[in-house]
Design a protein around this nucleic acid. Structure first.
Lengths: 160, 160
DNA sequence: CTAAATGCAAACCATTTGCAACGGA
DNA sequence: TCCGTTGCAAATGGTTTGCATTTAG
């Protein structure tokens, strides 16, 4: 049994909930999959292994995983929620390529420190934060350099 | 005529679009209202002044304002998009109180500098960024200090 | 005159909910 | 047994789209 499974079962017991085959399967699939799964993504994967599981259960379990501290909800602004592993994973932020959708994860202690300082300045008790940097990744910049079609126009519309 | 209106009309001309009474009204209401309006909020306000304007037009105009650089779209994670003034407004980030929903705007040049540095490190061309800090504001902390009911539990569930 | 803009209703789409049947503890 | 859980279908809710009509340039 992995540590995550242990955490999950413990959370379930503490909350007076029940362990079910569906929940075990969903946790299993979630843990096997790296990256930032949306609810639908996870549903599809789970459904491939057991078509009898409904999406409602997947969504509900995803919240359970979040409550248990195993998953972290991340919203990239496309309207849907994504989930990433959260157990013993370093906090990190994301750069999102608006061209190809690639996501770069990074961590900067300086960034964290300054945020803490800003929070303190406003006597704000920080619970969580989300930093989303949108732009164009190096690969897409290289590709774009080749075809100089609308470069000026695009650059012009780029805002901070 | 305000500078914003000038920017708007110029944008409309440049793009070969048309100036309409609805767009003028929507821009007007938007400019008169501070804060972070959702599409629906703005629709309601506009609708109060002219019930014949449809929400479709409001949503479409909001995108137009964003394209023209007059509005900035901000997503706080509640599923709906919010818009704030963007013309000659300093870029800023947000602290959101999870208790009362209050939004504190702040700006930190250090934060910006570090983000630029991180982007450079990954050869990422930054277009835009969004920093959302969620926590409990000073007012709510004070109120909470009085009724110590679930303090330990809440503090325990707080994750970074 | 003609392409853009409008407003309505219907469509979207990720997520949630009501509810009857099911199943752990 | 008892209450949590499940899956279906239907509902939700913010936003978008199709389309016939209107209107600015």
């Amino acid at each position: 049994m992995t540590e995550e499974q242990e955490v999950f079962r413990e959370h379930i017991q503490q909350q007076g909930l029940k362990r079910t085959a569906q929940r075990d399967l969903i946790l299993d699939v979630f843990l096997r999959t790296e990256g930032h799964l949306s609810g639908e993504d996870l549903y599809r994967l789970v459904h491939d292994e057991d078509p009898s599981v409904g999406q409602t259960t997947v969504y509900r379990t995803l919240r359970l995983l979040t409550d248990a501290g195993l998953a972290r909800e991340v919203r990239f602004g496309d309207g849907r929620a994504h989930y990433e592993h959260n157990y013993k994973h370093e906090h990190h932020d994301h750069m999102i390529c608006s061209e190809c959708g690639k996501i770069i994860e990074f961590y900067s202690p300086e960034l964290e420190a300054i945020q803490d300082a800003m929070a303190a300045k406003y006597k704000f008790q920080l619970t969580e934060h989300l930093l989303r940097m949108i732009g164009i990744c190096s690969d897409c910049r290289r590709k774009r350099a080749g075809s100089e079609k609308k470069v000026a126009q695009v650059a012009n519309s780029a805002r901070r």
